[in-house]
Design a protein around this nucleic acid. Sequence first.
DNA 1: TTCACTATTCAGCGATACTATGTACTAGTA
DNA 2: TACTAGTACATAGTATCGCTGAATAGTGAA
Lengths: 109, 109
Amino acid sequence: MGKQVTEMLKGILEGIVLALLSGRPMYGYEITAWLREQGFSDIAEGTVYALLIRIEQRGLVDVEKVSSEKGPPRKVYSLNAQGQEYLEEFWRTWSFLAERLEQLHQGGK
Amino acid sequence: MGKQVTEMLKGILEGIVLALLSGRPMYGYEITAWLREQGFSDIAEGTVYALLIRIEQRGLVDVEKVSSEKGPPRKVYSLNAQGQEYLEEFWRTWSFLAERLEQLHQGGK
DNA sequence: TTCACTATTCAGCGATACTATGTACTAGTA
DNA sequence: TACTAGTACATAGTATCGCTGAATAGTGAA
């Protein structure tokens, strides 16, 4: 991926992670792995952990420490009510953007 | 619009402006007005001008000064070959993101 | 002359992703 | 034992980009 993605991801990566957590609780390493599988090959581990700490401090997720069979204990994040609300707001904003962009893309041909 | 948009616009606003310019040459004030009409009510004027200067310095657009009937002369921007190429790259990146997000949005219901 | 509209510019700030590390635990293997 | 790989989290420093708020400047109407 080029460096265009880096800027485009700002604000969006957060939505992606929240959307993931709305499906089921997950921990950082797992989220990073999922992202890489999906083609977000350049996302640094540090980025995900920093993001998780941010959304935790903003009270969008609940955290639980769960010991792992192999390695240090995992911090499992789950979306709480406030996070759910924030996620819905994210989708509204995203839809707004996606609509405008779609129009531009069509019109530009 | 909430402040979520602020972050989400990063990198995307640039694509929007380039897409606009691929349609026809435009100047800053005109672009700002268009954005407001489209519902991007919170985009500050300064933001657009700063963006235009950036893409000019990166050689994605050509600039021509055109005197206006009412007010200071306009700086009319038009997309050049390099800008066109960059825009295509933008659309590829956008499509990648939009696809992933769409899947998440569907799956999350 | 005052206001409103057109038109551009800039300094300072905040948020976010990246780079590049460092820490720590477990299991396999030579 | 020592080494390696995989799992798992954390953080300091940097760059980019959009916003805030203000300044500058030209035109026409009240």
